[in-house]
Design a protein around this nucleic acid. Structure first.
Lengths: 337, 337
DNA sequence: ATGAAAGCGCTAACAG
DNA sequence: CTGTTAGCGCTTTCAT
């Protein structure tokens, strides 16, 4: 196995210099067509493959972008990355992947690793553990694009792509009201995250807008899981003031709610149930679960777009875009009275 | 914003040479502890971050590995990549991601792009379109590790990681037999792919081993989808010789089968139903779907392991490992008489 | 234990 | 239209 061919080999073969070869390969207009043709032919003949490492070292641009997400096991993140890769590939970028596993330590390490690999920028969604976001500051200092999505830090002052969670809460509630439900409860998480807080705000606003009373007793703060859903539904249905509809913090929780309601022979849509996330199972359970779609694909595309805009401008942090994606209400059986 | 610090800056600061700095940073035993300490301190002071590009260019090793999959939207692939990244990260490797979108053309381009990025090797699962696999040969020629998983090409003669599909078919069938089902049908795809063919072979073998008749009429060849499942179940239940259990080619098809059976008031497990893949929804539908798990995590780990073994050996293609993962029967309501 | 210097493969400023 | 040459940041052989 002989060594890989370089532009020197092409140059030698044609009795020209490497600069000519380099220019020919990069299709400079100053190179004669004849030379270009010869170069490309010889390149093919020698089985030449460019070493992007070398050009990157020289130019300082790797055309590689780092993506940090908590975990690819979470379908939402996989889909976001799917679209990021699709869009950025077409723009000549490669994706270097890093999972934080919901740990700040890993996240810090991810930024470090990616930066050492000289990525041209980073698109990230923060780990749940992350509070101090100073490790992301480095990118701003280096004037390298950083785009945050879904789990973002407002204070970081970088471009973000998020779902309009307020609106998501509002729309879920409004949908239930439109279906005729009047006493709407909310099973959510205690987790201190603006995502969940904003949904509750939207919920309250929708109630207020429709002259329905906001009762703190109808908001159950716990965790988000099937078990938490069962627990929340049980608690709500045992109370004096039974709700006629329940909004669950995510689809798993909604599933738990439905299971409990079925046991109580209050199968939705008798009691309305709506979740958040539009998990793959949501359309297949019985009854089908109405839910708010997170628009993962759109988010990915928006991230890629934001990134491209930043790269294109000489000062990436000149004007900071905050893209807010509209949530989508998916109406299914569980809320269709 | 001043330029990034290099080993030259550290050297200058300490009045030593770059070679010493380089050796100190790489913890060579020939460097005195005092020097090392000084170097590390100055590195920190100057906010030094190594440029891996430069060392890669020199050493020829990027510690980056390319992963090509059809789509991250397919949860199975996302989970495999999840574990590949987890394992390889601990071994100092980064993951460069490429999606083929089930197109050979993209796949070819992926290999090219990744090779130009000088990856140390590639882990891939082929697109459904791929028949000619010569684009993968390059890696062998360059003696760079290539590991294929799930959708592999036997003729390529490279390490592979696959599920034992024969056994998967066998176990699904045997499970049904053990549950007392005696007339077992199979709804599968016409697609020419050894995966599906082997499952049918396993099915037939299990029937034979238990003195049950193999009837070609009980095997429905169509597509794999909810619709195909409905169609298959309908066809089977209308026939003279009605099965008492149905194996579906994947969980979506199984879902269709279940829906049709419910309509016919033959709700499983009255008629047994088992699928393949263990999709996230399978545990949540009613009745819960028994299925064969594809062991995505194990596959990812096995891929990473195979890759590491290849990298470690001077001749990666000396002995070619074929890892076969045992399928796992997930028993749920749909087969529990 | 440390230094000097060549070179990985490519680009680009300068020269002609 | 093409050649010369320095250099991107790091590693490593050969000296000392």
């Amino acid at each position: 196995m002989k060594k890989k061919a370089t532009i020197y080999d092409i140059a030698k073969e044609l009795n020209i210099t490497v600069s000519t070869v380099s220019r020919a390969l990069n299709n400079f207009s100053t190179i004669s067509d004849a030379t270009k043709k010869a170069v490309f032919e010889t390149a093919k003949k020698l089985n030449y493959s460019p070493n992007r490492l070398a050009s990157s070292l020289k130019s300082g641009k790797t055309h590689t972008i780092g993506v940090i997400v908590p975990s690819m096991e979470i379908h939402f993140f996989a889909v976001v990355i799917h679209s990021i890769e699709q869009v950025l590939k077409d723009n000549g970028y490669r994706i270097l992947l890093y999972q934080s596993s919901e740990s700040v330590e890993n996240e810090i390490n991810g930024v470090k690793t990616l930066l050492e690999a000289q990525v041209d920028g980073i698109i990230a969604s923060m780990s749940l553990e992350t509070e101090d976001t100073s490790h992301f500051q480095v990118l701003k200092k280096q004037q390298k694009p950083l785009v945050l999505f879904d789990r973002v830090d407002e204070n970081l002052n970088v471009p973000t792509v998020t779902l309009d969670d307020y609106k998501a809460g509002y729309l879920a509630t409004k949908h239930l009201i439109d279906q005729g439900y009047k006493n709407i409860a909310f099973v959510t998480t205690v987790h201190q995250n603006s995502i969940f807080g904003n949904r509750v705000k939207g919920y309250k606003a929708a109630l207020a807008d429709h002259q329905l009373e906001i009762k703190e007793s109808q908001i159950i703060y716990g965790g988000l899981s099937i078990k938490d859903g069962r627990y929340g539904a049980d608690k709500l249905m045992r109370a004096e003031d039974r709700p006629d509809a329940i909004i669950a913090g995510d689809d798993y929780t909604a599933l738990g709610v439905i299971k409990k309601l079925k046991e109580l022979e209050l199968t939705p849509p008798e009691i309305g149930v709506i979740g958040f996330a539009n998990e793959t199972f949501s359309g297949f359970i019985t009854p089908n679960l109405s839910t708010i779609d997170q628009q993962a694909s759109k988010m990915g595309v928006a991230c890629a777009q934001s990134f491209i805009n930043m790269i294109a401008s000489e000062n990436p942090y000149k004007k900071i875009e905050h893209t807010v994606i509209e949530p989508l209400v998916i109406v299914r059986q569980s809320t269709s009275k």
